[in-house]
Amino acid sequence: MKLLDTAELKTLIEALLFAAPGPVRAGQLAAALHPDLPPARVSAVVELLAEEYRQTRRGFVLQELAEGYQLRTRPEHAEYIRRLHHSRPVRLSRAALETLAIIAYRQPVTRADVDYLRGVDSGAVMKTLLDRHLVRMVGRKDLPGRPVLYGTGPEFLEFFGLRSLAELPSLPEFNELPPDLLEAVESLSTAAGEAFADQDGKSQG
């Protein structure tokens, strides 16, 4: 079997992406197409396809995610698709979004860190996020009681349409803070996290 030309590859890759149940990596596509096909060639053709979709303004876009390539509809078409599905949009509560933001930006973090930053108990919200696989346990912290550390996984990136955590919107910084206070706050920020383990003592003491 001779190597496929670009036009052929384009339609084949289009077919594979169309029929794929989830994101597909260049390597997986290459393996399905031809034993000698280098994944880099597939990536290049995928780029051509993506560009073609953009230029012809198709109803879907070819997006690169952490787990591979996927065809996705355009955000501006969401309302029509929901009407077709008779489905209510997927929703995350504000509490869930706040918790998720803390975990995504500060991972790995413990429940205590999240509770301290939010000022409320995050148990129920954490459970929802774990159930929806947006958050996962990534280890244990070397502290008394070995608290579980949480972080985000591939499902988080897939849900938000990101290639990596580096694509997260940048965090607002304390840039309006006067420099002397900024210094004080920074030294406190490390101390505060540790002090939280002793939350009760703090509020009374």
Binding site: T73, P89, V90, L92, L100, F160, G161, P169
Partner: peptide, 17 residues
């Protein structure tokens, strides 16, 4: 940050596969 996360195109809300 939570608000900016919410503005991202979410799978199942804004974009569909």
């Amino acid at each position: 940050a939570a608000q900016s996360l919410e503005r991202l195109p979410l799978l199942g809300r804004d974009v569909f596969v």
